[in-house]
Design a protein around this nucleic acid. Sequence first.
DNA 1: ACGGGTCCGACT
DNA 2: TAGTCGGAC
Length: 707
Amino acid sequence: MPVARPETSDSRVIAHVDMDCFYVQVEQRKQPDLRGLPTAVVQYNAWKGGALIAVSYEARKYGVKRSMRGAESKEVCPQIQLVQVPVARGKADLSTYRNAGSEVVSILSRKGRCERASIDEVYLDLTDAAETMLAEAPPQILEVIDEEVLKSHVLGLNSEDGSNAKESVRKWLCRNDADRRDKLLACGAFIIAELRLQVLKETEFTCSAGIAHNKILAKLASGMNKPAQQTVVPFSSVKGLLDSLPIKKMKQLGGKLGDSLQSDLGVNTVGDLLQFSEEKLQERYGINTGTWLWNIARGISGDEVEGRLLPKSHGSGKTFPGPQALKTIASVQHWLHELCEELSERLQLDLDQNKRIAHTLVLHATAYKVSDSDSHKKFPSKSCPLRYGTAKIQEDALSLFQAALREYLGSYTAKIQGSQNNHWGITSLSVSASKIVPIPSGTASITKYFHGHLSCSSTKQSQNNLVEEGTPVPPSGNESYSEMNVMKPQIEFPGEETMIKIHVALQKIRHVMNSPRKLYRYQPQDIYVGSEHCSGMNQSQPMKNYSAEEPCVKLSMPSLNRQEQKRKAVKDKGTCSILRFFKNQDPSCAPQKLEHVENIEDVKAPPLSPGIQSRSNNCLDHNQSELPKERPSEDAGDSNVCGSFQIEQRRGGAWSYNIDEIDPSVIDELPPEIQQEFRAWIRPHKRHNTVKRGSSIAHYFLPTKNT
DNA sequence: ACGGGTCCGACT
DNA sequence: TAGTCGGAC
């Protein structure tokens, strides 16, 4: 449960963007003939036409639902087009959808801090962008307002149905006497409309969005008008919205907690929660959940947009329902091999593209067992340090499985392994990789080291230059990789093996030194400090309070000043409206190659100053890490790169990270300047509260909760 | 005997 | 910490 920040006057601008039936859209882009037709994506066509995992809005009109079987959907909608999920290694392969999701994230992350919430959803913190717009180009001064903005739904606006809806939206957007918080939301609506249009132009995907003062309300709103629409929740509409909102509609309350609220407390709407004191809720649901509920009832949530563009883990799994259950070790091994191969491939991609390393391998399975006293026992999960290389992962996964199976079967040990057994069956298997952290390129000496190989002599100076051109560096010295990427194209790596040694060794040190992030629970008299206790060396947490003079945001906003100019540029293609965008596309045509569509940056942001301009192109500052870059053309198999991992791992007694276990000889092999930094890391570090809070400390102060 | 395959976060 | 569990898409 996210920490709720009891900020009653939250003036952030948060957006939630939700792709419309995303998998369907991905398939429709691949196969444009399917556009406009009732379509669904199914996987595993074998049994009853496969299971639907995404349904187009055309198909939904016929009553087709997710979780129908393909055959079932044909019954209610005979003309439905069913597209199969790609299969690789005998299992569903979602990589095309993951990649499509990344395309979207890379666009949405241009205007502010961006959090990849799932394969097809993101949160954006547009506060700074909206502030800037309000200061420099508030809606009132705009002569022309984009169609897409006028089509926003504004909750609580009395004429939502009237024919003059657009006119009333326009009035709301431009109200001069409005609450400042609502003015900011209005700016957010402009920014989001533009981003959604940009997504459409560059990817052909439509999405819906919600704009509100916090994540949970934005999320709620984004689902209210779909597809291809956006919904704003003005501050003054929150109470009215929540009063009548069925409790289970709220994120996090759709499951057992929502059930309990209904049956145990008789709470049917979010508004009903208002009757209960915080203490009462805490008493029943615990201190965290209780406080969270109390706040949610009031539309309050301090959950922050994280600034993370990449997933935190990778997994690959498959179910083997009923009769297909695996009953021999050999078959388990076979499937583990398939799953591990996929996982390994994705890990290798992540390493190549994002310079990240996963540290933990986890095996999950479900199983059944016949006639045993505790046949209901769950199959335990097992994990171990992750060694790179497909074969290693396969080997380790199998060991984990066997350990888990022994535990699962208990005293009841199976003797026969070769052939069928009658005691147990495996109904699902999955392997996943977690604790994925960037390889440490941010530390000064390593950056220097790289830079040295770029034939820049003065290391200190070059470091500074890099920092200036790259991303603002959080004081903790672990940041995103913009700087690496800046130089990447030219780098001759100084021997990949050496580098990997450095990385792994540094990772271990960090691993040891990182204390787990503590949940900071709000107490009324407290100052809010988020969850930032020990962000020091953690995987770069974004600065929550990056300074107001972020060049990136500043720069992108003048584009809104040039609203009209931009309109003209776009107008040539017809209109800004998303619906009209599609009308203008000849459905019989092959999809346009969008790579060649003119970059809107060029249209809207004529060069200001060269230095700044280049920054705006690299506008990832709010975000922890970069999106995957183009796939390197060279094949990324299990290369020699992995070899050095293993050497290193073996020497250290690889099964637990202990700082004492780091082989000093590894360090000795490193270049001198890195050695030095290394030893500094090993020494007790004092980076506790050096986190720069920036000028807006006030941001962290809370009004005392009244009443 | 499940929508399947993944992700995430809290709790202990 | 590793492992479990719940929730969501």
